[in-house]
Simulated scan of single mutants.
Amino acid sequence: MPPVQVSLNPLSVLSSHLLALFFGFSYVGSLYAVKNARLRFSETRSDAHHGVQPGSRDDPAVIRARLTAVTFATLFNCGVIYALVARSTPPSFDRAFSSTLTILGVRWPDSILSSLQTPLLFLGPLYGSYLAGTLPGQSRYSLDHNFEMFWSWVGFRNYTWGPLTEEIVFRACVLAVYALGGAARWKMIAFAPLVFGLAHVHHAWDTYNRYGRTKDALRRAMLSTLFQTAYTTLFGAHTSYLFLRTGSLLPPLAAHVFCNIMGVPQIQNEMRRFPERKQIIIGVYVLGIVLFAYTLGPWTDAPASLYWRAPEGFWRGAVGQPA
């Protein structure tokens, strides 16, 4: 069979930027397009049974509606990637579908180490949990609490469906359109996280309303949103690197779930709580950062990664043509 002739870059740089922004807008916009997914603010602070304010972000009914909304948004965005692939290849569903899965990183990583690399950065917080005795198997570890945390609707959102849909949209789909536009790897690592960071700005509205729509509430909303946007942008740069480096969705997904479980490192709180271990805590934090940097390249090395090729080889490799 003669090789498939495809264009070098199916998208322009401008089209890549616009599509990346569209993916982020459609994901966040779906939370507001569906009536039951919109947050409702009232004077009632909580219900009598679950301690959750009806219509709030943690209301199970709102969570179910929001998860449904982002699921449809995610499927739609994946459909856009498929349409781009199908438009630029011969009319073969099997070929276009297979190429789309490859572009979206639906493959096992070459090494399991790529999914274990991110926890090294949290070596300090893990040591803090060890000192507190809250790691699995320790005296203060609560199986009931963790079971409830992971198997509630809040847990399903935070540790399963939320990370999965966000990684598909903000890593796979966004990075795909940049790669289809021929963007250099460093540009993808720089631009894609901005879309992910900006997608969290809408949380300011929730914070502002939860704290009473006062000047203090506005200040809280602005500060928390600035921090969250900066944190998620940095996190997005790391997971974008993992996706590009491995060509697989699993390592960034594992990093996302792990970081959601761990939360933001609290080194100051840990040093105040265990002053006699202050130097050791600092040392373990530094050790984690060093090990993270040292293993970032070797542990994520994946010769089969489609995205880590030269830009001119991406599209040819995506449709099964030698680069």
Score class of each variant (00 low, 15 high):
266 Q>C: 02
251 P>A: 06
296 L>A: 12
277 R>A: 14
256 H>K: 08
270 E>I: 09
287 L>R: 06
245 R>D: 09
215 K>L: 14
228 Q>T: 14
238 H>L: 15
208 Y>M: 07
294 Y>P: 00
233 T>F: 01
277 R>M: 13
272 R>V: 13
220 R>V: 12
221 A>K: 03
198 L>F: 15
202 H>A: 07
204 A>M: 12
303 P>N: 06
231 Y>C: 02
301 D>K: 12
226 L>S: 11
266 Q>V: 07
297 G>N: 13
297 G>V: 15
285 Y>C: 11
257 V>K: 00
231 Y>W: 14
302 A>R: 00
261 I>G: 00
265 P>S: 06
240 S>K: 01
245 R>K: 14
293 A>V: 15
271 M>Q: 11
248 S>Q: 09
265 P>E: 04
260 N>W: 01
303 P>A: 08
288 G>R: 00
307 Y>V: 06
310 A>C: 08
293 A>W: 10
240 S>N: 10
237 A>W: 08
311 P>A: 09
262 M>N: 01
307 Y>I: 04
266 Q>M: 10
313 G>T: 12
284 V>F: 00
204 A>E: 06
299 W>F: 13
205 W>T: 10
199 A>I: 04
293 A>M: 13
242 L>W: 00
299 W>L: 05
294 Y>R: 06
299 W>Y: 11
239 T>P: 00
212 G>C: 06
311 P>R: 11
211 Y>M: 01
240 S>Q: 03
305 S>L: 10
218 L>C: 08
300 T>M: 02
247 G>W: 05
284 V>T: 04
207 T>I: 15
307 Y>P: 02
195 V>E: 03
306 L>Q: 05
209 N>A: 10
240 S>D: 11
189 I>A: 07
303 P>E: 12
271 M>H: 00
266 Q>N: 12
234 L>V: 10
200 H>E: 08
221 A>Y: 05
295 T>H: 09
211 Y>E: 14
194 L>N: 05
203 H>N: 11
250 L>G: 08
272 R>Y: 13
246 T>F: 04
196 F>Q: 05
280 I>S: 07
286 V>W: 10
227 F>A: 10
223 L>K: 06
207 T>A: 11
290 V>A: 14
244 L>G: 08
297 G>Y: 14
253 L>A: 06
199 A>Q: 02
311 P>W: 09
220 R>L: 15
273 R>E: 13
229 T>E: 07
286 V>S: 13
291 L>P: 01
193 P>C: 04
209 N>G: 01
222 M>N: 07
198 L>H: 02
210 R>G: 03
254 A>F: 08
274 F>Q: 04
248 S>K: 06
230 A>S: 11
306 L>Y: 04
251 P>Q: 09
